[in-house]
């Protein structure tokens, strides 16, 4: 079957290529902002933020395999996510939650409510990732963000096989936990 343009874009994203995300964002950002301003009276910053979140969720839906084929256009799909993001934002700002949409879209809203009692803060995790060797950062990104399986990671990073990739990922994860432990110790000493 001949692939259409949207499916080619989805495939590229699925294969770890972020360029289509940047291109789509650049292509539709202004239109979304205008649409959002006229329909929801949002300001430019709010609209841009929602559109960024929509692009991230779109990316996540593709790499996780939730979105494999589109019945609508890419633009319609992304705008639909953006619309829910905007509704959530507006509801949140009026101290209400829009629970229904959280089931429709894989969003980050739930995490925001649950982020309080964690042992490691997001900043600490990001700091620890930044201290890891580049290859470890790549492995973790491919595994957790691009949701690659071990075989794909091995192929992408020229490892011998999936087992090598698995060992590497395990080693990197342990390295990350060590870094986190160090960071917390420093914090306790201070």
């Amino acid at each position: 079957m001949k692939k259409n343009k949207s499916n080619i874009i989805l495939e590229k994203i699925k294969n770890g290529n972020s360029t289509p995300i940047y291109e789509l964002y650049e292509l539709y950002r202004d239109e979304f902002v205008t649409w959002s301003q006229s329909n929801y009276k949002s300001n430019k910053e709010q609209a841009q933020d929602c559109f960024q979140e929509a692009m991230i969720d779109f990316h996540q839906n593709v790499v996780s395999g939730k979105l494999t084929d589109l019945t609508s256009s890419l633009k319609t799909y992304i705008f639909q996510i953006g619309k829910f993001k905007m509704l959530n934002l507006l509801k949140k700002e009026s101290r209400l939650t829009y629970q229904d949409n959280l089931q429709v879209i894989k969003g980050k809203e739930v995490e925001d409510f649950m982020n309080d009692d964690k042992v490691y803060s997001q900043e600490q995790i990001s700091e620890a990732i930044a201290k890891l060797p580049t290859d470890c950062q790549k492995v973790l990104k491919l595994y957790y963000f691009n949701e690659f399986d071990m075989e794909s990671i091995a192929r992408e990073l020229n490892y011998k096989n999936a087992n090598t990739a698995k060992s590497k990922k395990s080693l990197c994860m342990k390295g990350l936990i060590k870094e986190l432990t160090k960071l917390v110790k420093v914090l306790l000493v201070c």
Partner: peptide
């Protein structure tokens, strides 16, 4: 804790992507 670290890693890369999109905003 292990699970929260995994979530944190995912989040980190989401934030990275968002930064890239903000860079596009700045440029535009």
């Amino acid at each position: 804790v292990y699970k929260s670290i995994e979530e944190g890693i995912q989040n980190h890369f989401r934030v990275e992507l968002k930064k890239e999109l903000k860079n596009i905003d700045d440029r535009l």
